[in-house]
Design a protein around this nucleic acid. Structure first.
Lengths: 146, 146
DNA sequence: TATTGTTATACTCTATAACTATA
DNA sequence: TATAGTTATAGAGTATAACAATA
């Protein structure tokens, strides 16, 4: 039996988030993507047709960080950069059928991670936990969760 | 009104954890430390007298990652590397009075982060949330939370 | 002038491998 | 030979600054 060093909500949240991300990355690896690709792919599938700048704002990332993620997804034929004649500086990022299939598999991996997190909780606690996460994310202005 | 892209527990947990860590880092900055220093300082203060290897195991870090953190804390006169005559390869890491004062301020910063997280929740939800975090951390084997 | 996408760069965190001194 | 601490290095994530093309 060992005394625990740190039980604050912030500490536990951060550490659980790190473990969760690592596990998610393991599950995504066979699909050839990592969590950041999943986030962008999900945003592209959910948002109205967007430019890279718009996606960056929606995800709380800087625009320069988007470039390589879209490069990777485009190399997988999961998204396309579609020229916009009205403004030739920017592209409209579109998901492809292959991208939709990829997203579906990635969402299944996400569900598995959620089960890993919540399976040990009593159903009432799991419900309360998920509602609290949504409320906290909204209050903190977490990008992608607004 | 905007539709949210991602409401899975894993995604929200990770993003909230990142925002939380960033906020905690901001609060710790005036103290001259970052979250990783706090984690180690808290572990040193809580565990029985330990070597660097033991601290690394307790925190789920590799031993090489501990070195610089202790270098920093030692430069702040917050901890000491005390030689151990029985085994001259290793040191016993001890917290100093200055380190205890530093930890106290850091813990206050941690409390502020926890308030930021939990203040918007109904008391019953906040209680359930904290209990769930502890349960999940235990089930995942989160280091430092066992 | 301002903006989009891009490149180059840097910083943090974390991990592996190799070295040293001890055991 | 095995272990503690250390150093060097590398990968992933994220950020800033500067540039070319376009507005």
């Amino acid at each position: 039996m060992e005394t625990s060093t740190l039980h604050s909500a912030g500490y536990l949240l951060t550490k659980i988030g790190q473990v969760t991300t690592a596990r998610f990355a393991d599950l995504l690896a066979p699909l050839g993507i990592r969590p950041k690709h999943f986030g962008l792919l999900a945003a592209i599938a959910t948002l109205p047709p967007s430019t890279q700048q718009e996606l960056a704002r929606a995800l709380g990332l800087v625009a320069s960080a988007i470039v390589e993620i879209i490069d990777d997804l485009e190399a997988l034929a999961a998204v396309r950069r579609v020229p916009r004649p009205l403004d030739r500086r920017s592209y409209q990022i579109e998901i492809t059928p292959a991208g939709s299939r990829l997203l579906e598999k990635a969402l299944a991996a996400g569900d598995e991670v959620d089960r890993l997190l919540l399976d040990g909780l009593a159903p009432a606690d799991a419900d309360s936990f998920e509602r609290s996460l949504v409320a906290i994310a909204a209050r903190l202005g977490v990008p992608g969760a607004a």
